[in-house]
Design a protein around this nucleic acid. Structure first.
Lengths: 139, 139
DNA sequence: CAGAATCCGTGGGGATACTG
DNA sequence: CAGTATCCCCACGGATTCTG
């Protein structure tokens, strides 16, 4: 996804003119947000995160739970989340191999925070759908 | 972005076996979350949303505030947010034309919810960076 | 079982020129 | 000023095959 909100190469004083509050808010709020999304966005991250949230899950389980995901994308998503310190990968040196994924504390916290978004979505699901119909009807 | 978390075409009873709690949580939580992200994700949406949050902003202002955005993407992002009922577009029939964007109540609520994410990001920024360094160093 | 490697298409997004 | 319209590219992601 990327979400490079662009911290801006420091506007020179003479170009800064209108709506400074909006610009300041943008720089203060948008960037950290972009960071979160850069870790969490990407078509599958959320799905994997939520699926892993309830205790250790194995690779193949995830492949089944997160429906529609390809083997490749599951691997990539897991690697990325692990790299960002959101997932713990535990390998059991058995044969056949067994690998379990679980959330770090940091990720569990994030998972809680995301719940607020879920609730927002559920509260406004209808309103959004209605807005779309209205918008589409108007052309 | 898409985030099609895949509600799944209803697993047949015989295929459902392992880790049902994770699977159930996935279906209950991931999907609404995917919906939010489908409206809010997409490299520029958050930036625009935050920039618009502080009162009516004009098109050109946004083009300057949201640094790096192209004229094309700004338009597309605005249209999408408007369609989802998150933005209000007000046209003043003057010459030259003047168009102002502002958040709907629903979007303002969302903006508040996103603040929790911002805080999470700021709290764990260092931790994430450290995790990355550690991960990259380990190969 | 849990991946790594390879090939390939699709569309998201950048740059630019034009217009009411 | 506030957009459309057009061209083009490449990175994301799907399908498939191979392996420790």
């Amino acid at each position: 996804m990327s979400v490079e909100v662009g911290v801006g190469a420091g506007r020179t004083a003479d170009t800064a003119a209108t709506s400074d509050t909006a610009a300041e808010a943008f720089e203060k709020e948008a960037c950290p947000l972009a960071e979160v999304l850069d870790h969490v966005a990407g078509k599958w991250s959320i799905g994997v995160l939520v699926a892993v949230a309830h205790g250790p899950v194995r690779f193949t389980e995830l492949e089944r739970i997160v429906e529609g995901i390809s083997r490749r994308m599951l691997t990539l998503t897991l690697r990325r989340l692990e790299r960002d310190g959101l997932l713990i990968r535990t390998v059991y040196p058995t044969v056949p191999p067994k690998v379990e994924y679980s959330l770090t504390d940091m990720a569990r916290e994030l998972h809680g925070t995301l719940r607020a978004l879920t609730e927002w979505a559920e509260r406004h699901r209808g309103e959004i759908a209605a807005a779309r119909v209205r918008y589409d009807a108007a052309r």
